[in-house]
Measured scan of single mutants.
Amino acid sequence: MDETGKELVLALYDYQEKSPREVTMKKGDILTLLNSTNKDWWKVEVKITVNGKTYERQGFVPAAYVKKL
């Protein structure tokens, strides 16, 4: 869990989004888990830094590609 009590997951593999509802992740990324009720796709939040500014983006990743921490 992070400092706000949200559950975290670890990306076990790289994943490139294939639709606007998904998010890209790299092996080793730590993501915030938002919803894991679907056994195949989990909703996560990723933080992306571009030119020194951090953005948060929500989307789905394959559940088999992440592990709860």
Rank of each mutant, 00 (worst) to 15 (best):
V66N: 00
D29S: 06
L34S: 02
L8Q: 10
Y55K: 09
Q58L: 05
L31R: 00
E22K: 04
K43T: 07
I48R: 07
T54C: 10
E7S: 13
I30C: 05
L31T: 01
I30G: 01
E7F: 11
L31Y: 08
M1F: 12
K39G: 09
E56M: 15
T24P: 07
L31I: 07
I48C: 10
S36M: 08
D14K: 02
K67G: 07
T49V: 15
L12F: 03
E17W: 05
A11C: 10
L10P: 00
L34E: 02
K6E: 09
K27W: 03
K6L: 13
V9Y: 05
M25D: 00
N38M: 08
T54K: 08
K43C: 10
K67E: 12
L8D: 04
V9L: 10
E22I: 04
K67F: 08
K27Y: 04
G59Q: 01
Y55T: 12
V44E: 00
N35S: 13
E56H: 15
V46F: 07
A11W: 02
K18E: 07
K26M: 09
N38P: 04
N35Q: 10
D2N: 10
S36Q: 10
G52P: 02
P20W: 07
M25E: 00
Y55C: 10
T37W: 08
T4Q: 14
T37Y: 08
K53Q: 14
F60E: 04
D14A: 06
K47A: 10
D40L: 13
K53A: 13
N35M: 07
T37F: 09
I30V: 13
N51R: 08
W42C: 04
L12Q: 04
K39M: 10
K27P: 02
K43N: 06
E45L: 12
N51P: 06
E22A: 05
K68W: 05
Y65C: 08
G59D: 00
I30S: 02
Q58E: 09
F60V: 07
D2P: 12
T37H: 11
Q16E: 14
M25W: 01
T24E: 03
E22Y: 04
F60Y: 15
K68R: 13
Q16A: 12
I48Y: 13
I30N: 02
S19C: 08
V66D: 00
L8Y: 15
F60I: 06
L33M: 03
P20K: 10
D40S: 11
Y65K: 06
Y15H: 03
T4L: 13
W41D: 01
V23E: 00
T24C: 06
K68I: 14
T54F: 10
K53D: 12
T49Y: 12
E3K: 08
G59K: 01
T32G: 08
N51S: 09
T54H: 11
S36A: 12
E17N: 06
K27L: 04
L10F: 08
G5L: 12
N51Q: 11
L33W: 01
K39C: 09
A11V: 09
T24V: 02
E22G: 10
G28R: 02
E17P: 14
T24K: 04
S19Q: 07
I48L: 12
K18P: 04
V66K: 00
I30H: 04
D29L: 04
V50S: 10
K53E: 13
K27M: 07
N38C: 08
G5E: 14
L12G: 01
A63D: 01
T49C: 11
W41L: 03
K26W: 11
V46T: 15
L69E: 03
K47Y: 11
T37A: 11
L12W: 03
E45V: 13
V61N: 00
T49K: 11
E56A: 15
L34Q: 03
E45T: 08
L69C: 10
R21H: 14
S19R: 08
L31V: 06
E56P: 14
T54D: 10
K18T: 13
D14W: 03
Q58H: 09
E3I: 08
D2V: 11
K47H: 12
T4M: 14
T32Q: 11
D29K: 03
L33D: 00
Q16P: 06
P62E: 02
P20D: 13
T24W: 03
K67H: 09
Q16R: 10
K68S: 07
K43L: 15
V61K: 00
N38W: 06
K27H: 05
E17C: 11
Q58T: 10
A63W: 01
V66S: 01
A63S: 14
T49D: 10
Q16H: 13
M1T: 15
Q58N: 08
P20H: 10
T4I: 13
R21G: 15
I30R: 05
G28F: 04
V46L: 12
Y15E: 01
F60N: 04
I48V: 14
V9M: 04
L12I: 09
I48Q: 08
V23W: 03
W42D: 00
M1P: 15
T32P: 15
K68E: 05
V46D: 03
D14F: 03
V50P: 03
V46I: 15
L33I: 03
E7R: 12
T37N: 13
K39I: 11
F60D: 04
Q58F: 06
K26I: 07
M25F: 09
M25R: 00
L33Q: 00
S19N: 13
T4D: 13
R57F: 04
R21A: 12
M25Q: 01
N51V: 06
F60W: 15
R57W: 03
V44T: 01
K27T: 06
K43G: 05
T54Y: 09
L69R: 03
G5C: 13
D40A: 12
M1R: 06
G59L: 04
K53G: 09
V61T: 01
V44N: 00
A11K: 01
E3G: 12
D40P: 02
V23L: 12
L12M: 08
G59H: 01
E3T: 13
M25H: 00
K39H: 12
K43R: 10
M25P: 00
T32K: 14
T4A: 13
P20F: 07
L10C: 08
L69D: 03
K18L: 09
M1K: 10
L69I: 15
V61P: 00
P20C: 09
V50Q: 10
E3D: 13
V50E: 12
S19E: 07
K43S: 07
T54L: 13
L12A: 03
L12D: 01
G52C: 09
Q58C: 08
L33R: 01
T4Y: 15
V44F: 00
I48F: 11
N51E: 12
S36N: 09
W41S: 02
D14Q: 03
Q16C: 10
K26H: 09
I30F: 05
K26T: 08
E17I: 05
L31A: 07
R57T: 06
E17L: 06
N35V: 07
A64G: 11
V50W: 09
L34H: 04
Y55F: 14
R57N: 05
N51Y: 07
L34N: 02
T49S: 12
T32A: 12
A64F: 08
K27A: 13
T37V: 09
M1W: 09
R21E: 13
L69W: 07
P62T: 01
L10R: 09
G52R: 05
P20I: 10
A11G: 03
P62H: 02
M1Q: 15
L8H: 09
E22R: 04
K68M: 09
M25L: 08
D29E: 09
W42M: 03
